[in-house]
């Protein structure tokens, strides 16, 4: 019997045939490599005089974390939006919605399969990025122990574990980005608008926190949750920002996903 799993499998199969898939995954892999190369040359020439450079040269395990720090609010949301913003709108672009919605699956199943596929893509991109960063970093600076944000030393295997748990915590706000991307994809029916729109939402929310008088909003902004993983790097681990990220992101993601679902369920399929 066809079901959500059918849609999910075929959405992943379709992703394998599309250029944008490799654009995002390629970026996720190349960035850590370029980063490590840049660190290598700057360190050689001028010695460790830029931010995090001491971290980066002492242990390769610092590389994925520093990339997460820099790429948090725009790079990964962009990679995520590349697929989430496109996955419904591309059906409008190709006019294929009418083709798939006149088979034996209802709209809810199609939507669920697409949501899972978009989320899978984000997970793969971020884990791939982290893994490449660990490998490239370890080649450059060694698979060494890491200093936590509280100053304590964390052994290399333990640090590796922390890297992956950090990536998973980082996926919490990314899940909200997936939902926003799907909503814009369903509403705008235009891939470019949805991708750019999702990134704009992410950046505008961050700007809100900088506005005078709105500083109090800071803990509840989506952009803040992109840094929640840093709680893991303290000893003892600071769970407060992680717990907050979970419910704040749900407040952003769940309504967006619900709205996207309703739009998709009720819309007239008139184009194409």
């Amino acid at each position: 019997m066809p079901g959500i799993a059918t849609v999910y499998r075929w959405e992943l199969a379709k992703l394998r045939y599309q250029k944008r898939t490799y654009l995002g995954l390629g970026a996720a892999m190349i960035v850590p490599i370029l980063f490590v190369v840049a660190v290598h040359f700057r360190h050689d020439r001028r010695g460790g005089d830029f931010a995090f450079s001491s971290y980066l040269t002492r242990s390769g395990l610092a590389v994925p974390l520093v990339i997460l720090l820099f790429g948090a609010v725009w790079m990964f949301p962009l990679i995520t939006a590349l697929v989430a913003g496109d996955i419904i709108a591309s059906e409008d672009h190709n006019g294929t919605l009418k083709t798939i919605l006149t088979r034996s699956l209802d709209r809810g199943q199609v939507f669920a399969g697409k949501t899972l596929a978009a989320a899978t893509y984000a997970v793969v991109a971020i884990l791939l990025n982290g893994t490449v960063a660990v490998i490239a970093g370890s080649i450059q600076s060694g698979f060494n122990s890491l200093q936590s944000l509280s100053g304590t030393i964390v052994s290399a295997p333990k640090a590796l574990e922390l890297v992956y748990v950090s990536l998973l915590v980082y996926l919490i706000p990314i899940a909200a980005i997936v939902c926003i991307g799907l909503l814009l994809s369903a509403v705008t029916r235009n891939s470019a608008a949805a991708v750019v729109g999702t990134l704009m939402v992410s950046l505008l929310i961050q700007l809100l926190g900088i506005l005078p008088g709105l500083g109090g909003l800071q803990p509840y902004l989506l952009s803040t949750q992109f840094n929640a993983w840093q709680g893991l790097l303290r000893t003892p681990i600071d769970w407060a920002p992680i717990v907050r990220a979970a419910w704040v992101c749900a407040l952003y993601g769940v309504p967006a996903l619900g709205a996207a679902f309703l739009v998709f369920l009720r819309r007239d399929v008139a184009g194409g």
């Binding site: 379709k14 009418k98 006149t102 209802d106």
Partner: peptide, 17 residues
């Protein structure tokens, strides 16, 4: 979609990936 059991067709030019 259960209503489309035994029913098939297309509107305007058929579209594919």
């Amino acid at each position: 979609v259960h209503a489309l059991q035994g029913v098939a067709g297309f509107v305007e030019a058929p579209t594919f990936y």
